[in-house]
Structure formats: structure tokens, C-alpha cells
């Protein structure tokens, strides 16, 4: 469960990049975070994960405040950043082991977990070479594997599908669905509206730092009393908010 309470943030004084954001992502749901470029998706995710200091308000992950109990809160999520270029001089296996050590995963479980995840994404055979030699998608896969290694309850993913081939993207979606069945949470940002429509239990649309819609696709259609595609609705919502 992720709870965002009255959060504001400005990079530059006087210009709020996030303006009084309130959002609750419940247990057992996949939440899609949508919005045009520069809307504030990455900024929000950076605040949830503790990368960016919060100006006002607070964020709770499974009830733990990211500002007051950061270490405990950080144990509760796995995070995939928007750029997959992580420590390229490390070998894939070194990176995964590094993360496993950070999360204190015991030998047996780590072997099982790394093999399971990397074989699923078909990068197991590449693990012994430096990540510099990986393609964009392969890097993305390693980072995803790393984030899911210790089986965190909350997944926070910033545009996780970019660069993935259709099969991997499909696999990831399947994994998300399976993950929330056990009462866990998935929060991810995306530009692919089709993914949001088919995969997400609820979506949030943010525009210029303000949350302009939260709810299911059905609710969106009801609210606007139009039976349009998500794409048309999205364009309408983000257009009107001048």
C-alpha cells in the first residue's frame, strides 16, 4: 500500500512541479500513472522512493513514512528507475548479487530467485558479462530482476515497458497480475494507454503537477458521459486543464 498525503514539490522556487498531490494505491491493485511529458510522474516516483526530498506532506509505504523511517520504508518496495543504465561496469550477476547482499537474501533463496527471474527474461546466459555490453532492453530486464529479487510487497516502476520486446513486456504484465493476487501493490508510470486500459485496476492522470483524475476506466467514461477510447479521454482531460 502506498499513501501520498498532501505532497508538494518545487525544483525551482515558486513553481510547483507537484501541487498538493493526494493518492492512495491500495493492496491488491495495479495502479497506472499517466500524464504528458513533464507532468510530474517521475518526480512523484522519486519522492515515493526517497530520492527526492519532499517539500510538503508525506508519503507512506505500508504505513511507514519515507521521511521519518526511511530505511524501513525502503525495505518495503522494489524500484525500477526510468533509465536502465545501472553500473554498467558490473557484470549482470555482480549487480544482482550486490542487490541480494543489500537486501540480505540467503544463498539458497538467492540462487533460486536469480535463476527464476533471469531465465524467465532470457538473460541468464548473459549474466557473466559486463552490463555495458547489454542492449537497452537487456539492461532494463536486469534492473527489473534486481528490483524484484527480494520479493518486495510494493513494486514501483517508472516506464518499465520501454525497450522491452513484446514477449518480455507480456511476461512482465503477467508477473504484475500474479503479484497483486497475493494482496500486493504495483505502481507504475507509462505512456502506453493500451497497457493502462487492459492491465490497470485504476489509473491516475497527472497534468502539470496536479492530479486531474483517479479511478477506473469505467469511472472515467461515466464521469465524462462519453463512450470514447481511453486515448481520446486522456487527450481531452489533459487538454482542458489549462
Amino acid at each position: 500500500m502506498i499513501k501520498i498525503e498532501n505532497v508538494s514539490k518545487s525544483y525551482v522556487k515558486g513553481k510547483k512541479s507537484i501541487d498538493n498531490l493526494n493518492l492512495e494505491i491500495k493492496d491488491g491493485e495495479i495502479f497506472g500513472f499517466l500524464g504528458p511529458n513533464g507532468a510530474g510522474k517521475t518526480t512523484t516516483i522519486k519522492m515515493i522512493t526517497g530520492i527526492l526530498n519532499i517539500d510538503e506532506g508525506d508519503i507512506f509505504i505500508d504505513g511507514k513514512s519515507i521521511t521519518k523511517e526511511p530505511i524501513d520504508a525502503k525495505k518495503e518496495f522494489g524500484f525500477v528507475p526510468d533509465s536502465p543504465d545501472m553500473f554498467l561496469k558490473l557484470k549482470g550477476i555482480e549487480y544482482l548479487n550486490f542487490l541480494a547482499d543489500i537486501y540480505g537474501i540467503p544463498n539458497e533463496k538467492r540462487k533460486e530467485r536469480i535463476e527464476e527471474l533471469t531465465k524467465k527474461f532470457e538473460i541468464y546466459d548473459n549474466l557473466n558479462s559486463e552490463m555495458q555490453s547489454y542492449s537497452h532492453g537487456m539492461r532494463q530486464k536486469v534492473v527489473i530482476c534486481g528490483a524484484l529479487l527480494n520479493n518486495p510487497r510494493n513494486w514501483i516502476l517508472d516506464e518499465p515497458m520501454t525497450g522491452l520486446d513484446p514477449k518480455s513486456s507480456h511476461d512482465l504484465k503477467e508477473m504484475m497480475r500474479k503479484h497483486i493476487k497475493d494482496g500486493n501493490t504495483v505502481f507504475f508510470s507509462t505512456h502506453v494507454l493500451e497497457v493502462a486500459e487492459k492491465l490497470c485496476d485504476r489509473v491516475g492522470i497527472i497534468n502539470k503537477g496536479k492530479l486531474v483524475f483517479v479511478g477506473t476506466y469505467e469511472e472515467m467514461k461515466n464521469k465524462f458521459k462519453e463512450n470514447k477510447s481511453l486515448e481520446d479521454l486522456f487527450l481531452e482531460i489533459t487538454e482542458n486543464e489549462e
Binding site: A100, D101, G104, N107, K111
Partner: peptide, 11 residues
């Protein structure tokens, strides 16, 4: 390949 080590060592 899958050996655990201390946080200090690994970091």
C-alpha cells in the same frame, strides 16, 4: 556465482 557476503564487502 550465488555467494552471500557482508554488506561492507559487497559495497
Amino acid at each position: 556465482a550465488f555467494k552471500k557476503s557482508t554488506l561492507f564487502k559487497t559495497y
